[in-house]
Amino acid sequence: MTAYIVRRCGHALVVLFGVSIIVFILLHMLPGGPARASLGLRANPASIRAFDLRYGLNEPLPIQYLIWIGQLLHGNLGFSYKLNQSVDALLAENLPRTLVLVGSATVIAVVAAVPLGMYQAVRRNSPEDYVLTGLSFLFYSMPSFFLGIVLIILLSDVLPLFPATGPTATQPLLSQLSNLVLPVLTLTLITLALFSRYMRSSVLDNLTQDYVRTATAKGLSRVRILFRHVLPNAVLPIITLIGLSLPGILGGALIVESLFNYPGMGLLFWTAAQSEDFPVMLGTSVVIGTGVVIGSLLADILYAVADPRIRY
């Protein structure tokens, strides 16, 4: 087990190195190079020379990479000249709000997907199963902004239950719970569609296993078989699925944040893209990539700890 965790951590480090290389390549693909991308297209040659000198951009590429990664490791993600703020400060302000959005949507989706998937598997090919399968296909096939709009129409316009805009940045998030409902609900439904389909087939697979037949033969009640035997086996793979779906959920969060004007990392990234604020885009990519790597590392370790059958 320890050997596996050590190996898995080493793997994560290699992937992190890969992420940094990708962002470094993006940095050098920027129009006009890193200096112009940071200072703006109208920067004069003198300030560009000063910038290049300061950040070692005259050095050969490997040295440049080392300087850049050294900065990153010291927690310096760059400076947004457009917003006149350090990228660290911007992220420190916006990251927690994205974590609230993504975290609550993922938790609700998992908590809802497990009973839903089990119910569908137990009553497979019943009208209820068809309706739920149809719904999850529908949510899965809707562009996320469209799903958000439909929810706004239904729950804000037709039935005025919740406000159509997300929380504002000026007040604490938790004092604006009603503004959180629609963004979280949108992201939850997209994620739920994926998880419940997975859960349904996972339970179906387990129902055909020998241990279920044995348990039935022993005379255990159907409820006991489902909850004591099938449920733990069917739920475990969901942990891995969460790790694998993290990039997708974060992508969905970007759309949801821009739709509801929710002041998180996604919105920050998108606004930065529109104003060509590349330091912010690069810093956000590094942080999100790191988050995904750590997230899937945790999911894999948790899975190894939770499933006693896993021996690597």
């Binding site: 890969g18 290389i21 990039p247 974060l250 970007l254 998108w270 060509e276 956000t284 990539g289 995904v292």
Partner: peptide
């Protein structure tokens, strides 16, 4: 495969927006 892992770690939509901006 590590190349694939690294590219998958940054959510696709973020990279797409990046490439589209460039």
């Amino acid at each position: 495969m590590r190349v694939v892992d690294a590219a998958l770690a940054i959510p696709g939509l973020f990279l797409l927006i990046f490439l589209d901006a460039i």
